[in-house]
Computed example of a mutant assay.
Amino acid sequence: MALIFHFHPLSSFCHKALIALNELEVEADRRFLDLGDEAQRADFLARWPTGKMPLLIDDGRVVPETSIIIEYLARHHARPGQTLIPLDADAALEVRLMDRLLDLYVMLPMQAIVGDRLREEEDRDPFTVERSRDTLAMAYGMLEGKLADRAWMAGAAFSMADCAAAPSLFYATTIVPFTAEHPRLAAYFARLMQRPSVARTLDEARPYFQFYPYREGLPAQFRPA
């Protein structure tokens, strides 16, 4: 049975795993998941009760959570020599550290801000939004320092950390742009956007960016006409 990958084309966490699929050149049946559809939602929750995307199914085996999905793909489906996790133990720890930092301090606060804009005006939470903006600014400074001596997020090679960085920074910069204090981070982000695995993921998502609530902040080539 082919790999089945359940995803939504606007989801940053789905983009993270899609970049890994593209980078590793792993074929999968990519299935658009519409949780607004009652039947799809019921089937998905039966497989993974948290309801969180993406989800990988491998011959009936359920593989959830983006970092686990990426490690699973690299271990079981990548060609020999292809990996997004270094074999060296210390290098692998750095990749996992940067992956977690990006998920926790860029991806999640970005999602909190986007989610707040989707609420009705009376239900919005300015305190959480401001705190999330502060977290993004802190994270940018931290990443700027980390990039002082490396080409990619966790070292000399593209890794799982870069799979996390691409979508988290892509969306986060529509809310809190880089400043003059982040030249290395801005240069790194430009390299990310040119990576074929990242470019393919964003290009396939392009038709859906019209539904993104901060679409006015997207890079010019991705803004809806």
Rank of each mutant, 00 (worst) to 15 (best):
L104K: 15
D134M: 12
L147T: 09
F44S: 01
D29N: 09
Q82S: 01
A156M: 14
R75W: 06
M98E: 04
R31K: 02
D203N: 15
L55P: 11
A151V: 09
I113C: 14
F5W: 15
I70H: 12
F170H: 00
V129R: 04
T173A: 01
P167L: 06
A28W: 04
L202N: 00
V129T: 11
V114F: 03
R195L: 05
Q40I: 01
R131G: 05
Q210T: 01
Y214A: 12
I85A: 14
A46E: 13
R195K: 11
A89F: 12
S159R: 14
L55W: 05
G141N: 11
K52G: 14
R31E: 02
D203K: 09
E181N: 11
V114K: 14
H6Y: 13
F127E: 15
L147K: 10
A39E: 09
L3T: 01
G115M: 15
Y212V: 00
E38K: 12
D58T: 13
T179D: 11
L84F: 01
M138F: 12
A20R: 05
L218K: 10
F32C: 02
P183L: 02
R31F: 00
R184W: 02
A190W: 08
R191H: 04
L143C: 07
D162Y: 13
L192G: 04
F5C: 05
P49I: 02
H8I: 11
A157W: 11
L3K: 04
A161R: 03
A148E: 13
W48Y: 14
A78H: 11
F158Q: 00
G141D: 05
M1C: 09
L192Q: 00
R131E: 08
R223K: 05
R100C: 06
T173H: 07
S159Y: 05
T173V: 07
A165Q: 09
V129H: 12
D134N: 05
R191N: 10
F158T: 01
A180Y: 12
P54E: 09
A164K: 13
I175P: 08
L21P: 01
R223V: 06
P126H: 06
A139P: 04
S168Q: 03
Q40S: 10
K146G: 05
P167F: 03
G115P: 06
L87K: 07
R117P: 04
A156Q: 15
L21H: 03
A154H: 03
Q221W: 14
S132R: 08
L35W: 00
I113R: 12
R100H: 07
F222Y: 14
R75M: 02
A139G: 13
I69C: 09
V26P: 05
E121P: 03
N22F: 09
V63W: 01
P80E: 00
P177D: 05
A156P: 06
A74T: 00
A156Y: 15
L35N: 02
A78M: 08
L104R: 15
Q221C: 08
R96M: 12
V129G: 01
I68A: 02
E122F: 10
P54Y: 08
G145D: 10
D88R: 09
F178H: 10
E65I: 14
P80G: 03
A220P: 15
E25H: 00
L24G: 02
S168D: 11
S132V: 12
G141Q: 09
